[in-house]
Design a protein around this nucleic acid. Structure first.
Lengths: 188, 188
DNA sequence: GTCTATAATATGATAGAC
DNA sequence: GTCTATCATATTATAGAC
């Protein structure tokens, strides 16, 4: 009888994700990751032979899967741009717990001018969001360059509102940014 | 004859600031800070007896002094709101090296729900900027609550554009956000 | 698959020479 | 004021028992 898995892959990745979101890559010591997951360090190495770097990679990969499942289909679906961006706003609100959690794309950022544990996953994820949001702006009547600018502003508002919300300890800042997103995409 | 100061206080703080901006608080090891400043670890302790926490505190304090000298007087001065926000944009552009540097207020952020080396200096600095920018919006014709919202959006755009610029490796994103700031403050 | 134990290195910090 | 040398602890990582 094989040893039982104490924590499922899904829950494990969820807890690792939460830790990286809360304290960042450098702040997430193996001790902290062990506490957060309930697995001893050596058990974490069994699941992730390449250690913390691999954990961060798989956390980013899981986030990409979530976006593939819950965000990109929504933005690419048939339907009115206003409906799609409304649904996007609701998903983002849940994704960041109403502004009480930080974004992995910010917290896993590598030291400037150094290689990252996640390779180019952060840049790629930003780019995919830019493309998908730009397509919605395009449907709403913007030309190609205007659509790119609107999509860019949406990402800026999301990231910035999370940073400022954390900085002043007021999650409502994120909610107000979410409220601006529809008109940014639809009206420019 | 007393031993000479190898690095002046101003240059020392500048180099520490740059390191914290580049790699964050957790990422800034004493070895990294030593390399960046050209002072050995023990020399850093001579200048900052409380170690890294004190270095971060003094870096934040220096940033507050820079804002006191270069930003707040500008925003509080007599003059047209459009001129003041234009000057603000130019100062921000230099302050963040055209989007190629990150913001201390983001990079020195404490792990969520933990105490910070900088105490509440981050929250306080955000609040002071909100107040000063809100006053300019007020002068431009916004009522009190609208002015607060406009100021908030300006901080959100600044922080967010720095995060996204670093994430995709494109400093121009910051420049485009700067371009939006005047109309945000002046027109809502 | 998880654990205890352990090793090698990095980190924050101090003592004392110059 | 800066340095070399050192210390205690934390951190990443591995070995081997169960």
């Amino acid at each position: 009888m094989p040893q039982v898995r104490k924590v499922g892959d899904d829950v494990l990745l969820e807890r690792l994700t939460r830790t990286f979101k809360d304290v960042g890559y450098e702040g997430a010591s193996l001790a902290a990751l062990s506490d957060a997951t309930g697995l001893k360090k050596s058990s974490l190495y069994h699941r992730f032979p390449d250690g913390k770097a691999q954990m961060a990679q798989e956390v980013m990969a899981e986030t990409a899967r979530v976006l593939d499942a819950e965000v990109f289909p929504l933005l690419a679906a048939e339907g009115a741009p206003a409906d799609k961006i409304g649904a996007f706003v609701r998903v983002m609100d849940g994704f960041y717990a109403g502004g009480r959690q930080s974004c992995l794309l910010n917290m896993l950022q590598p030291p400037r001018d150094e290689a990252n544990a996640c390779g180019d996953a952060i840049a790629t994820t930003f780019q995919r969001l830019l493309t998908a949001l730009g397509a919605v702006a395009r449907e709403a009547g913007a030309d190609d360059i205007e659509a790119k600018l609107r999509a860019e502003q949406v990402l800026v508002e999301l990231q910035g509102s999370l940073v400022v919300a954390r900085g002043v300890g007021d999650a409502a800042i994120f909610g107000r940014a979410l409220g601006r997103l529809p008109s940014i995409i639809l009206d420019g």
